[in-house]
Nucleic acid binder design. Sequence first.
DNA 1: TACGTTCCTGAAAACCTTTTCGGTCTTCCG
DNA 2: CGGAAGACCGAAAAGGTTTTCAGGAACGTA
Lengths: 350, 350
Amino acid sequence: MSRVPTGRQSDPDGPLPTGRATLRDVAKLAGVSIATASKALNDQPQVRAETRAKVIRAAEQLSFSPNTLAQGLITQRSGTVGLLTSDLEGRFSIPILMGAEDAFGSDQTSVFLCDARGDNLRERHHLRALLSRRVDGLIVVGARPDARPSLGDLPVPVIYAYAPSADPADLSLVTDNVGGGRMAVDHLIRHGRRRIAHITGDPSYGAAQDRARGALDRLAEEGLPLAGDQVWFGAWSEAWGRGATRMLLQRDPDIDAIFAGSDEIARGVLDVLHQEKLAVPTQVAVIGFDNWNILAVNARPPLTTIDMNLEELGRLAAQRLFAAIDGTLGSGIETVGPRLITRESTAPLD
Amino acid sequence: MSRVPTGRQSDPDGPLPTGRATLRDVAKLAGVSIATASKALNDQPQVRAETRAKVIRAAEQLSFSPNTLAQGLITQRSGTVGLLTSDLEGRFSIPILMGAEDAFGSDQTSVFLCDARGDNLRERHHLRALLSRRVDGLIVVGARPDARPSLGDLPVPVIYAYAPSADPADLSLVTDNVGGGRMAVDHLIRHGRRRIAHITGDPSYGAAQDRARGALDRLAEEGLPLAGDQVWFGAWSEAWGRGATRMLLQRDPDIDAIFAGSDEIARGVLDVLHQEKLAVPTQVAVIGFDNWNILAVNARPPLTTIDMNLEELGRLAAQRLFAAIDGTLGSGIETVGPRLITRESTAPLD
DNA sequence: TACGTTCCTGAAAACCTTTTCGGTCTTCCG
DNA sequence: CGGAAGACCGAAAAGGTTTTCAGGAACGTA
């Protein structure tokens, strides 16, 4: 049974609009006025069932599809939002984007994607264009999880995702890196590991600091020392994972677990452990961070890791934005909890 | 020196619109009619310089930004295009998207991003929504580089990128996999390799077949046999790369180069070569395919690979689309040539 | 038959901009 | 000084839809 597109909604079963029929055409074909046609298609009550059926049939015949531009003009709502990102190629904006796309039903809201490529000027360009297009709201995804400058006062609600706004009056949604670090170490401890080291990336990243802090907190609670005497900060690369692991093993050959600050680093760690004939996970357990599938699943053995729940973050951003479009927007920083993905690189110690 | 937004263009130096001023407001403030205001801001000639200045000043004061919806309604051109993809998480749509975004100047055209997640119904949903939004054109990015069903006749031009349309009346832009395979083997031959093997992915992928064909063609030209007696088809994974390499070495320990059908596979190949104490590139050269940075750059040693030039493909798609919006669209399949990225995993044999 | 309800329908305004076309004012030439 | 040409400006229509409000038809009741 096939219905006609009504207002914003649309019926996937109907034929695709091949022409450019307008409401006027539908009305003429149905023998009613434009006003009646509109009401019939939008489920307004003041139209007789028989008339409605006539209109619907006409709309189907012409495969009418309402002009959203005109609707937006009159309702003062375009049904679009802008997603302004700074690192499309990076792996962070994509899951967020998917989560957001998911949360806005496809026929309710469409997403304009803009990549500023880290360039401030380009960001302003995009912003101008989006506002000109009368987007109903904006999601800003930063390149790295550290505070970024606020866009200031805009005529539409803005949500900062992944990278929080520097202005506490804005609403930001970020991942809980402290909790993630804690969760990683907790998992290792539960599996009987006692000599846990931590190799991570660029110390200028708040995320690196936060994950380390979470890890140290959890160790402290358990009265355990950090193996290797220090947090091994470096770079977010496999090469650093390899180098740090070598140094670490030299200083402290007795470790039984390594918490890597990213899956990339974890790959380097695994590589050197193999070289040194240390069995994973039986002798040394390894846990990564990010759940970057291509790296984690293909690792040898597949990598236990912390997933930052970025899709969830995107979904949440969309929901908050949606709520804010009518009502008023909150402020401050909200965090999204991480999730442990267990694979084979960690296992209970016998 | 600061100019006001004029028509479609906008000035990044100007203040961001904080309010919702309309042309009427600008006209009133400037003491002219709406028509004159419009003409002044759009660089129409029939307005005195002095008047124009007045209007521009007023527009600046109100930080006016024209309502693109209204413009679209009247010009019958929304200044938007839809990008309909099936694998956002995959690595293929992103570069294409970036190329396309790049080619459409940000203030000329904005991109609606829709991910159908491989679901046909969802694709039709998105399509309906996009047509309702009166996009000026459509780029369809398939999930894998094999022919996909055509969307049929639509009121806007459509370009199929990466995965060609099954209907030859459509215009498709794809990468040249045969050329890529040829280029990879050519590179190895030029570096003095004579015993070249090929390990690749799922044989049901046209891309796997095409790359293999290109490789074999080039070998034949040189009168060289394929080392390992066969093309090693399997899966697009590191694990297969590892497994195939082991089998290959058993059958033919004397190879001096391996062409991997993807960077993922190449990583598996490298892994086993290390285990077997075969030096790369001095004893065995390895070349990958895709130039997937995270895998290729971090490899040990960094991986020479074939880049499919996907950004270029996206840029080209945007250009073709742009041209088609006024004129008429071509048809058939156009290919984009690949590019060799030389890193350290291949080197001349002494 | 006249009148008050109830139910439907349609005319028209509104959203914001672009563009055409007619009108006014200046200027210059004869 | 009269008139033509040119420069500049504004009224109005158009684009496609939603929504308000007034009017018409059918019906029941007195």
